[in-house]
Design a protein around this nucleic acid. Structure first.
Lengths: 153, 153
DNA sequence: AGATTTTATTTGCATATACAAATATATTTT
DNA sequence: AAAATATATTTGTATATGCAAATAAAATCT
């Protein structure tokens, strides 16, 4: 039962998978693994990484508008709205409307998280660069960004 | 209104974003862009890329079991179940149970899609490698896979 | 052989994300 | 000024994904 144990007991490496040469497969698999790692890092503030990133932006650019968040986080407008709803529920940000624009401000409770958020970011950075090496991970990040920019439609 | 137009009209490049140096950000942004590109490629068979990949595996390895699909697609078991449910609804695969194991077979209707599926894969490959260059994209895929494997916990 | 543990799969539930349409406001055109 | 267009944001809806628990069967241990 060698074949069976190969398939079942051991986890297949991404590089061995039949479709490993395909960017869909690789980028998604990588993103999922990183997502998990990131969730660990931000667990202490009870926030999903996306929410945490948004909060960090709101703290550093108080009054920032959803459109700007869309640009900076490369997420869809509706996604930003949903993230904001959750952060507002948790009393970490508030939205003020004036005309058609909305401004997002951190609440005092949100601002208080700043140092913890910084620590989470640091923790996350360390956790992947220890596994992957600082240089390698920096290079990978750079080339992923380059590719993302090229794919701008 | 130069600043305004910068923020609002032009989309910010991933490499300019405040958190671009972070792997969470880059890997997710890339995966989302690639996802979109892939969806385009598989639209003609009315399948999401994940479903398409699973179907391709079922065609090439008839009788394949969910566990093997988990290994090869690096997805959670429950996700595989859900993908299978949908493919079964569409009468593209069938599941047979024997004891605790399940075997997945393509239906005739599923098998008929093979050549179209191959074309979709080809189309997708061409669409990203024209934008990114064959060598660059191959290199990127390779390093993403390497990283994914290292992150195996 | 019966009890315990391991393995395979599914279900219930939660969540992030996006598209398309709706809404509301601002800007431009005529 | 009124009409048309553009911009900003939200809502309704759909979907992929995962975790944890449930179920069920097989394998192992005693």
């Amino acid at each position: 039962m060698q074949i069976k144990s190969f398939f079942f007991v051991q986890q297949m490496k991404a590089a061995e998978s039949k479709y490993c040469k395909c960017m869909y497969f690789s980028s998604n698999a990588l993103a999922r693994k990183i997502e998990k790692l990131a969730q660990e890092s931000w667990k202490v503030v009870d926030l999903n990484p996306s929410h945490a990133y948004l909060l960090m932006l709101a703290i550093e650019q108080p009054g920032i508008q959803p459109t700007a968040l869309v640009e900076q986080l490369l997420l869809a407008p509706s996604t930003i709205t949903r993230l904001l709803e959750k952060l507002e529920e948790k009393k970490l940000v508030i939205r003020t409307n004036e005309g058609k624009t909305t401004s997002v401000y951190p609440t005092p409770k949100g601002k208080q998280l700043k140092s913890q958020l910084d620590k989470c970011l640091e923790h996350f950075y360390i956790s992947y660069s220890t596994i992957l090496g600082k240089d390698d991970s920096a290079r990978l990040v750079q080339s992923m960004n380059k590719v993302t920019d090229k794919l701008r439609s």
